[in-house]
């Protein structure tokens, strides 16, 4: 379970540019839920993810993972239980290290990074198998530096690496937005497969309304730091793109977008 309680967040507090993002924001996500989040720019979607992960500080409120209050924990400490994939495919991998080296790094998450050899040769076969499962030929590029791979290949690796070790929560921050439509579909399908297989509680922010409706079992729409639409599994099944597009257009017009 993931819970945000009474979150207050201001940007540039105390200056003329002070902007309130959240004022008493509450959200509760049950274990195993796959929540897709939509909303216009500036509605607070990414801020919400950053608050969950501890990338930004809050002025008030608390973040709970399970029964534990993780508000005081630093970002890297929270990441023990959280995996995150970013919009930019370069964020999830090391460009100057090889595919094999990247996989080895990810495989060691949660364990000490001591003076043992960086690559566990016995695991290389397992990595190869996992990469082969993607079906994009990465298993034959184990010694290739990740920096020369395409955005889609890198994002597939980033997704694989983020979910390689047991994590409780997966945070997807518009992770298909920088990809071409076909690759985006591929990454989205892969995401769905991994989330189902590993039963990870997932929050996915997306601008693609079709993905938001098709995937996941709960849909949120955010606007000006508030949740204006929250559809659970049953209601969401009946939901069509046109329905949320209508609502989306209405709030956008209100903002003058």
């Amino acid at each position: 379970m993931l819970e945000l309680r009474g979150i207050r967040k201001y940007y540039n507090p105390g200056t003329v540019n002070e902007m309130c993002i959240f004022d008493d924001f509450n959200l509760r996500i049950a274990p195993g839920e796959f929540v897709s989040v939509v909303g216009s720019n500036g509605s607070g979607k990414t801020s919400m993810l950053n608050i969950i992960c501890g990338s930004i500080d809050v002025e008030g409120g608390a973040v709970f993972a399970g029964q534990e209050d993780i508000s005081a924990k630093k970002e890297f400490e929270r990441n023990r239980r959280i995996g995150r994939v970013y919009q930019n495919p370069a964020m999830g991998t090391c460009p100057n290290m090889t595919v094999l080296e990247n996989m080895s790094l990810a495989d060691n998450k949660g364990k000490p990074f001591g003076l043992k050899p960086g690559i566990n040769k016995a695991r290389a076969g397992y990595y190869r198998e996992m990469l082969a499962g993607l079906g994009i030929g990465l298993e034959n590029k184990m010694q290739v530096k990740v920096g020369v791979l395409s955005g889609g290949q890198r994002q597939a690796m980033a997704l694989l690496m983020a979910t390689m070790t047991p994590i409780e929560f997966l945070i997807l921050d518009e992770h298909t937005a920088a990809l071409d439509p076909r690759t985006a579909d591929f990454i989205m399908g892969l995401t769905d497969r991994i989330v189902r297989e590993k039963r990870i509680t997932t929050i996915m922010v997306t601008h693609n309304l079709r993905y938001a409706v098709e995937y996941g079992n709960r849909l949120l729409m955010m606007h000006e730091g508030k949740i204006i639409l929250d559809k659970g599994q049953k209601e969401k099944k009946a939901l069509k793109i046109e329905d949320i597009l209508g609502l989306f257009n209405r709030i956008s017009v209100e903002c003058g977008n």
């Binding site: 023990r80 970013y86 998450k109 050899p117």
Partner: peptide, 24 residues
Amino acid sequence: KTKSGYLLRAVGDNEVLVVSLAKD
């Protein structure tokens, strides 16, 4: 070539990834 050395190379390459690996 050790795990610790890999982490060192990673931090110069992509700091975000090191944070993702739950390392300071």
